[in-house]
Amino acid sequence: MNGSPLTLVVCLGSISLILSASAPVVSIPTPNYIARSITVKVLSQDFLGSGILLRRRGATYTVLTNAHVLQAGDPPYRVQAPDGRIYRANLPQRLNFGKNDLAVLQFKSAGSIYAIASPGAFPASGDEVFAAGYPAVEERGKKQSLAFTTGKVSLVLAKPLEGGYQLGYTNNIKNGMSGGPLLNVRGQVVGINGMQAYPLWDQPSVFADGSKADERLHQMIIRLSWAVPITKVIQMMPKAENTTVTTVFNQAD
């Protein structure tokens, strides 16, 4: 052998693919890897819930979460990034999501660059999805690690429930995972986790317009976890917030 790179020719019908052993291997980030890169912890005096690194403008990052996550604690809020660093976060006063269970925080990071989420299209019933977030930990001293669960979209409502919830899925989510991402198979964020299946109190399922779901639909609703579609967030964010950013995936711990 003369030491030249090995070349493999693969014929598919009339198409020939030449694969060189010296060619670089391109690694495509998995949804799990992406979730670990874009999911943060939202803190006050204590842990409140999860959030999503949504946008970056210069050194300023915008974190998306649920309104009820912030309501569980008092300012000042803090954000713990995927690399463990903690930043003081502010509430942008100009952003208003109405009665939707959505909120954003902003923080500045002069030294570290973090990945940001890539929004996906509105999913369809039957689509495989992945839910991520940090479950609340009650045992002292136990490390709080990211949870990542698999499932599928089971019910897409024609009109949203109170809080903007419209995507019902089979993934298990726990307390603390509220505000975390719901991703598709491409690792794109399609929703924001916010409601667990089988609530402690069996209250009627009420839509955003004030009407109530009938009993058959209600029983379907309470068996699923629920997310607010990311498309609603994109529609309501100010246009001035849009920016083109090269996504950098940091190595997960």
Results as ranks from 00 to 15, higher is better:
G194P: 10
D209V: 04
Q80D: 03
Y134S: 02
D214T: 08
V10F: 13
Q166V: 05
S112E: 07
W201P: 01
P229T: 03
M177D: 09
V129A: 01
D46W: 07
V185K: 08
R216N: 09
Y87K: 09
G126V: 01
P204V: 02
R223D: 12
M236C: 07
G58I: 00
P24S: 01
G210Y: 03
R140Q: 11
I173S: 03
T62Q: 01
C11T: 14
T244D: 13
E138W: 03
G3Q: 10
A21C: 12
G163T: 13
L182G: 08
L19S: 06
K159H: 08
L102S: 01
L64G: 08
F148L: 12
Y134K: 05
T60H: 00
R94Q: 15
R57A: 11
N171I: 06
A240L: 06
E241A: 12
N175E: 10
R94V: 12
T150F: 09
P229D: 00
R88E: 14
V137I: 14
Y169A: 02
S4G: 00
I113A: 00
V79D: 00
G191H: 12
D253T: 12
G187V: 11
A227Y: 01
L19F: 08
A252L: 14
R186E: 14
A158G: 12
S205H: 04
W201T: 14
A240E: 15
G84P: 07
G163H: 06
A89V: 04
S16A: 13
N100S: 12
K152N: 06
I18K: 11
G187P: 07
L70M: 01
T243Q: 06
